[in-house]
Write a protein that binds this DNA or RNA. Structure first.
Length: 527
RNA sequence: GCGGGUGUAGCUCAGGGGUAGAGCGCAACCUUGCCAAGGUUGAUGUCGUGAGUUCGAAUCUCAUCACCCGCUCCA
């Protein structure tokens, strides 16, 4: 593993390029120029992602008695998201600086006091162009200087004159007045420039339901869910009522969520459409903090199992003030991506905030009765919420490697290899006849592939030299290559008849197995 | 959203107002008894998209889309 150097600035580009070249991940709508923040899984990406989801579902749902699965709709009743606070509450109003175009969160602007200089417009002396628009500059005590305000105003008006050559100095301000302002938040603290009115930014995708639906009918408005969690909370009672299950217990869901991210970045890391793997684990209020810690550990073990070493995972104990308002405790599980340490999963203790809100807004009781203690309460919830696409990206980044196999003094021989765990690798095995011209080898190889395909993704390849075929499989992370050779045919003695070599991707070492042992050998390693 | 950069074959990139290029990859055949880069032949491009300038635009101009870097944002 020669080049796991995360500091290589070209590393991410190589990964993106490999993903496209070998069919892991394509840009959505590429044929038409691409759709910002959306990505398609190619054949290998789809396998890899399915394997990740399968590992998660098996460990968290099928192998546990205390968690049930569900699969909620993506289109979401707007009342659900009003109750949860997603409608209205979370789209922060933003202001733009009229001068620098900087975007500021309206609620984070420090209130200021000072003298406001108001301008009604400006005219260019030479060309006669005029800009009829009001503008103001606020200067606080130590900086109060009329000329400074004029200078800022000239810069502002100069933006609207089509000829960029025009110096702002030749602008004539049409009218001025001043007022004293106290504790105002509509000026940019950095330069005193007036800001735009605060504007709501809709971070959810809105749509309408019904054949003749129109935007003005509030009943027709629906949203693409911004998280899978809400459908779990909303169905909590139905799930509990239809299953004999007691607290502490959870509901798990894998599915797509949608957020109109202002700025999608870093390949698939921040996308507008993404898949989540979420558990809402319900419990007595006394157990919330303890279970949060337990879930953190459970989840860390899962990441290790799918192939991310513990030392590449960072735990961020999100401090007071940075957590979501409803959360009493949040751990972020982060991974060292080539572009920085970034979040894979949040394990959040959400208290009874969600069920409490839905109980309040729907008017339906969402309490739990403990039969033993006769205690009645709204369950608290611990939420391990994992990003599926982020996990897939982390697995690819972690697996990607360029090894130099050349001895000292030789020309470099670079082997590109994806060191996926056999559990998540998109292709588990490839069967190769040593010589494609040998009909018997081809027949046996094809038969073996057919047998393996009943259980796993297994390819067949007879193109070119066998070494090249091994390298091709390395590049897509196939952990095992099985070669049918002359020994298999019995040409090297009866002992070796019906045996094949199995070549392990990471060590490149080969061992010999009888044909009947191949399937059980592989099955043991891929689950 | 702002600023900077990039966009030419599947990938990496060169070129440049007048016939579209290389390496790798891919396909076919030959060769090949176990770790790429052997031989022969071949296919593939709206030069990101749209307008403008021009006799002529892949090349110049503008707009737009996408990606990358920095800032901003991330319930």
């Amino acid at each position: 593993m020669a080049n796991k150097d995360n500091t290589d600035p070209a590393r991410m580009e190589k990964i993106v390029s490999l993903c496209k070249r070998r069919g892991f991940i394509f840009q959505s709508g590429e044929l038409y120029g691409g759709l910002n923040g959306c990505w398609d899984m190619g054949p290998l990406g789809a396998e890899l992602k399915n394997n990740v989801k399968d590992m998660w579902w098996r460990r968290n749902v099928q192998e546990r008695d205390d968690i049930l699965g569900m699969d909620g709709s993506i289109l979401t009743h707007q009342a659900v998201l009003t109750a949860s606070g997603h409608v209205g509450g979370f789209s922060d109003p933003m202001c733009d600086c009229l001068l620098t175009k900087a975007r500021l969160r309206a609620d984070q602007i420090e209130p200021q006091s000072g003298t406001a200089y108001h301008f009604t417009g400006a005219k260019h002396e030479e060309s006669g162009w005029s800009v009829d628009r009001e503008y103001s500059v606020l200067l606080n005590k130590p900086n109060q200087d009329e000329n400074k305000a004029r200078k800022t105003a000239r810069e502002f008006y100069a933006q609207f004159l089509s000829d960029k050559q025009i110096s702002p100095k030749k602008l004539e301000l049409l009218g001025e007045s001043t007022t004293e302002e106290t504790d105002v938040t509509n000026y940019n603290p950095d330069n005193g420039s007036l800001l735009t009115e605060p504007r709501e930014f809709e971070l959810m995708f809105k749509t309408t339901v019904g054949a003749s639906a129109d935007d003005n009918d509030p009943n027709a408005v629906a949203y693409l869910r911004p998280e899978t969690a809400q459908s779990i909370f909303v169905q909590y009672k139905n799930v509990m009522d239809s299953n004999r299950i007691k607290l502490p217990c959870g509901i798990a869901q894998i599915g797509k969520s949608f957020r109109n991210e202002i700025n999608p970045r870093n390949f698939t890391f921040r996308s507008r459409e993404f898949e989540q793997m979420e558990i809402e684990f319900f419990c007595h209020p006394d157990d919330g903090m303890r279970l949060t810690d337990e879930w953190l550990e459970t989840r860390l073990q899962w990441y290790e199992e799918v192939g991310i070493p513990r030392e590449k995972l960072h735990i961020l104990d999100v401090p007071d003030g940075e957590r979501a308002h409803y959360s009493k405790k949040t751990y972020d599980i982060e991974y060292e991506f080539p572009f920085g340490i970034q979040e894979l999963e949040g394990v959040a203790y959400r208290t009874d905030y969600d069920l409490g809100k839905h109980q309040e807004k729907s008017g339906k009781k969402l309490e739990y009765l403990d039969e033993e203690t006769k205690e009645r309460f709204v369950p608290h919830v611990v939420e391990p919420s994992a990003g599926c696409d982020r996990t897939v990206l982390a697995l690819i980044c972690e697996a990607f490697d360029e090894e130099n196999l050349a001895q000292e003094g030789e020309k470099p021989d670079v082997r590109t290899v994806l060191h996926f765990s056999p559990k998540v690798a998109p292709v588990k095995a490839c069967v190769l006849p040593l010589l494609k011209k040998n009909e018997e080898q081809v027949r046996i190889a094809r038969e073996l592939q057919k047998e393996l395909q009943q259980w796993m993704v297994a390819q067949y390849d007879d193109g070119g030299a066998v070494g090249r075929r091994y390298r091709r499989q390395d590049e897509i992370g196939t952990p095992f290559c099985i070669t049918v050779d002359f020994e298999t045919l019995g040409e090297e003695g009866e002992d070796l008849k019906d045996t094949v070599t199995i070549r392990e991707r990471d060590s490149m070492e080969q061992t010999r197995l009888s044909l009947t042992e191949v399937l059980p050998y592989l099955l043991k390693q891929i689950r």
